[in-house]
Design a protein around this nucleic acid. Sequence first.
DNA 1: CTTATATGTTAGCAGTTCCTTACGTAAGCA
DNA 2: TGCTTACGTAAGGAACTGCTAACATATAAG
Lengths: 105, 105
Amino acid sequence: MDTMLKTLGEPRRCEIIRLVWSTEMPATEIANHFPDVTRSAISQHLGVLRRRGLVNERRDGTRRLYSVNQGEIAKLKAFIDSFWSNSLEKLRDLAESHEQLKGPE
Amino acid sequence: MDTMLKTLGEPRRCEIIRLVWSTEMPATEIANHFPDVTRSAISQHLGVLRRRGLVNERRDGTRRLYSVNQGEIAKLKAFIDSFWSNSLEKLRDLAESHEQLKGPE
DNA sequence: CTTATATGTTAGCAGTTCCTTACGTAAGCA
DNA sequence: TGCTTACGTAAGGAACTGCTAACATATAAG
C-alpha cells in the first residue's frame, strides 16, 4: 500500500491515472499532455504504473493503449477508509471489554 | 495533494498516523513502536507530519503529545473519491452534449 | 526493402529522501 | 546549581528518483 501511495505521489503519474480513468489512450497522446517533459519520461512513468498494476496495456498495431485498473485504486480507497473503520473497531473492542467487566447484558 | 500522498507513502509515517489516530501519544512512546530506527528518525518524521498539517502537537511539561488532524486525511479521502465522481461528471457532460445535438426533450 | 511512426530501454546525472551520529534546549528533580 | 528526561535540529552520507539523450525494436506504409 505504501508502494501505491508513493506511486501516486508523483504528480504526473497521478495525472496519467486521471487521463486514462474512463477512456483508454495511446502512449503518445498521454505524453502530449505533458509538454514540459520528454516522451521518454512519460514512458517510464507508464512502465512504473504498469508494473504496479495500476494501468492495463492493450496493443493495437504499433500503439499501446493504456487504461486504469480501477480495482487497484479501489484498494487505496478502502485503505484510506480503514483509518476510520479501524478506529470504530477499536471502539467496539473497547465496548466489548467493558461488557466483559460488567458481565453480558 | 501529491505532497500528502508522498508523505503517507513513507511506511513509518503512515504507521504513525494509525498509532495516533484516536489517541494522542508522546513522541518517545511513538518512537518505541519502531525499534529498528533511532528516535531521531521518528522525530524527523513527526516534524514532516506536523509541517504538512497531518498531526497536531500539544505540549505538556517536557513531553509533546501528537494527535492526527483527521480533517486533512479526510481531504485525501475526498481526493481519491473524486476519481470516481469526476468520471460521473464526464458522463453527465457527455449526456448533455448529446442532448444539445438532439435538442432539449 | 526502405523509411516513418510508435514505443520501450539504457546510461548517467542532479536532486531528494531517510537514516545515523552528534549536539542543543527546555522542563523537572536532587 | 547540577543532573536527568524528553525532545528537536544540524551535518553528512548512502540509496533512491525523475529526468534527458541516445539507442533498440516492431509495425505499417511506400
